[in-house]
Amino acid sequence: MNEDIIITEDLTKKFGSFIACDKISFSVKKGEIFGFLGANGAGKTTAIRMLCGLILPTSGKATIGGFDIYKDTEKIKLNIGYMSQKFSLYEDLTVKENIQFYGGIYRLSPKDIKERSKQLIGELGLESSENSLIKSLPLGWRQKLAFSIAIQHEPKIVFLDEPTSGVDPVTRRQFWDLIYKAAGRGISVFVTTHYMDEAEYCGRVSMMVAGKIEAMGTPKELKSRFNSGSMYEVFLHLARGAK
């Protein structure tokens, strides 16, 4: 269980003179839920995009599942799942078709896809609507489905970029149940959020302020270090410190 899935060292991304990510270093273990917290514009999305191979870092080192993010982007892409901030399922395709499509692009065999889609639909209790178009599903179900699809090829790590924004608290709780299940199967979860209550659910969190990681540790450690009762207070403390 101690295998490191992500290791970054001084990872930096500059857009012109603006430094979106400033020398961030951290590691994520196998099966760990790593919360990547920060205010809007703190550089969370940039960090995720670098790790997924969508943009190249300006400097620094990082490996994912042992693959270098500069050289082995193709191999990395096969071993990660990604769920973007914006909604990532096709609204005009049915539940089944979405599962099949994403299974197909991750090179699953038709037999695997069939099995997994059956299992996945069963787990989510979507049997009655497997042939409905995504746009007819409630938002909460879509998000859960998007997550399940993002991990249907059993990646080593899944990146979730604010997966629960705009979702009601009950569905958010259910969503986190899915995350726990995935982590239990050994999939590392890298999740960004700005809901501080969700931070409490993470195994470890890092707090990002203005492109830098200001604090990192388990929620318990952070709370005691900053003498706060909740992650919300920890966050306020750090964010104010930046100003």
Binding site: L54, E74, K77, I80, Y82
Partner: peptide, 9 residues
Amino acid sequence: TMEVLLASP
């Protein structure tokens, strides 16, 4: 969805 496609193989 383009982001997801680009992050895929």
